[in-house]
Design a protein around this nucleic acid. Structure first.
Lengths: 229, 229
DNA sequence: TTGTTCCGTTAAGATCTCTTCAAATTGAAC
DNA sequence: GTTCAATTTGAAGAGATCTTAACGGAACAA
């Protein structure tokens, strides 16, 4: 689980401290800003995964900050506010806020709303593209490229490669690979593995007979490694 | 602006009536269900753009309904509940709810939260008209053109194409396509998919037997790609 | 050296999956 | 009910993928 970085924009030191402690104990990283101006700058420079924005800032209304952020910032913004009037809430939500919590808020609820917001916006986009020298693997789109050319893999070849990538650096035994890719009924079909390893190497290795990525661990299995150049 | 269709799952006739009136005057279409069982069936058959779910249903807990919905339903779910305990809220949000409103709620706020939820999940395609070489797709008006001639698509064909366009470059598995276009009860009707892919290709591809846009990923699904020329 | 074991490579046939066409069925509009 | 368009079903052939088996090479021990 990669740590999400949140930006807190709030002028009250007490609230910032509370948020910081709560968020850190729940595995989030935080950045903090005390007013609108520094908040906008910090959002632009550190690209947080989510912004907690106080609506009552000293230098400028949070509503204005929200509009300015939304000109370019597409990730979730949760409003924290002492005002609970319907007008404020509707205005904030229509200006692009993802959620609105009235102070004093319950920390458990805040955390759940943060998780919910992060979930909905990262599940769609969350592009997981891995690059190993001239080999590039896009796990969400199921695309593999070698020297920027798309490599056509069959479904079994892809499943095998994905398994290797997810266990980079680790030795995967013959039986583990067979079980995961073909199923528990194929534990003795070692030959399948040999054939498919050969095919994969032919497609993704620069020199298939001197493999750089898929190494043989004789008598045990195979290992996918990345040699940094 | 195309009308969004919302599904209301609530056992109180009074609330349903209130929601119906509020939503209709704000340009939403609604469907209604009075208990968990009919709610789940209706969600599966009419594919609403958002679900308003009461947590206190007569036949089954809303939490259970929420979990069952989230096994396949990916669009927003907003919880309406008489309970305001933090436990309930956190549980619902962590089970996949996008928002949680405590009854009695303010209708203006509800509407703003609905708009906010719909915005985040449909914001992907803001471009009005998409142009891919000689293929042109207008998602807001449901018009598709090939070489500037309007292509007549049936509703199923269009839904399929729209789904591809929204997920350009990504492999969409057979089951995903079947679930999104036909519904979760059609996961084994692979043949439907094959027939409709063929029809779509005949209509939008220059050479239907050498597809340029809709590519086959044998054993997995299909992928919509744009080859920059 | 010889034998053994493990691994890599290749290619042909078997099998699974996809495409295509067409007929049957459904459902909506009149 | 009739008509028409759309969807569903079925079936044959084409295509892609998997399976199998045969062979050669490398590593290692006797």
């Amino acid at each position: 689980m990669s740590k999400h970085e949140l930006l807190i924009i709030d002028d009250e030191a007490q609230i910032r401290k509370l948020l910081e402690i709560t968020l850190h104990t729940n595995d989030f990283k935080t950045k903090e800003a005390v007013d609108a101006k520094s908040g906008l700058i910090m959002a632009a420079t550190c690209h947080p995964d989510l912004i907690l924005l106080d609506i009552g800032l000293p230098d400028e209304s949070g509503h204005v900050v929200l509009r300015k952020l939304r000109e370019w910032y597409t990730k979730p913004i949760i409003i924290l506010s002492a005002h609970s009037s319907e007008d404020d809430i509707v205005k904030a939500l229509d200006n692009g806020a993802n959620d609105y919590l009235v102070k004093p808020f319950r920390t458990g609820e805040l955390l759940a709303r943060i998780r919910s917001s992060l979930r909905t916006t990262t599940s769609e986009i969350q592009k997981e593209i891995l690059k190993y020298n001239d080999l590039q693997i896009d796990l969400t789109n199921r695309i593999v490229k070698k020297n920027n050319d798309v490599v056509k893999l069959t479904s079994t070849e892809y499943n095998l490669l994905a398994l290797f990538v997810k266990n980079e650096g680790r030795v995967l035994t013959h039986s583990y690979l067979l079980r995961e890719v073909w199923g528990p009924g194929y534990l003795d079909q070692l030959q399948y593995l040999r054939v498919f390893i050969a095919q994969l190497r032919k497609k993704i290795e620069t020199e298939p007979n001197h493999p750089e990525f898929i190494l043989t661990e004789s008598g045990v299995g195979y290992r996918f490694v990345i040699k940094e150049k």
